[in-house]
Write a protein that binds this DNA or RNA. Structure first.
Lengths: 113, 113
DNA sequence: TTGATATTTGGCGATTTTACCAAATCGCCA
DNA sequence: TGGCGATTTGGTAAAATCGCCAAATATCAA
């Protein structure tokens, strides 16, 4: 694979990796309903606040969320609303694949063995 | 976080994790243009064929792709076309976030709860 | 300034992921 | 039947990820 192509997929993978964790998905979901500060998110997750802070760092590093400091609190907001739409597709896959909402391609018919 | 909610996000995370690797993103992209067998995908990726086979196993385990054996070859196809659409959103984020195609929400504009 | 609250950072052990090689299967055909 | 091409599986070492604690930083108010 050409270097330029590899880089493209690696960049995409960084974004996907940022979304590949339950707590971070919860954060995205929560932020889709409005901005939240770290301790609010921590309440919902249950991990140590430092852990939540690091999750936010991961999301922020790829541009999925943004943090704005107001007073002593940092308010995070979602910068990538389309992620939430994608969750609908993910749910369809989880329900067994062939959901119309996901426009799943029924090519093959080959089931997992 | 309630157990049921945790499970939901964990299930979603499994799907996202399956997409969180450059080679697997390449595979999804390639399969969006039609079915391919393992050695074809291997040619494009450059890793050992056993490595590619394992990547396909990951994608298949969550239902993103399906494999059908025809003769001595296994043809893989994409079962989750919406993933490709999502790549457009990911690219928008990579380009700096505020792409119209992604309906990005600008930081600090999230409605309060 | 001192103390309290909010968040981030450093560091560490534990778990997971990844890629390669070698070996095992599977289907096909001479 | 024996061998070949295609694919999968087992094993393993290196790298990345995760979550907690402790410590640092920043803001606010007394």
């Amino acid at each position: 694979m050409k270097a330029a192509v590899i880089e493209r997929y690696e960049a995409r993978a960084e974004v996907m990796k940022a979304l590949a964790h339950p707590s971070r998905l919860y954060i995205v979901d929560e932020l889709s309903r409005g901005e939240r500060c770290v301790h609010e998110l921590t309440d919902g997750i249950g991990s140590d606040i430092s852990t939540v802070s690091k999750h936010l760092r991961v999301l922020r590093s790829v541009g999925i969320v943004a943090g704005e400091k107001r007073g002593s609190e940092v308010y995070y907001s979602l910068r990538m609303a389309c992620v939430v739409d994608f969750f609908g597709c993910v749910e369809a896959v989880l329900r067994g694949g062939a959901g119309a909402a996901c426009r799943v391609r029924t090519a093959g018919e080959g089931e997992d063995r």
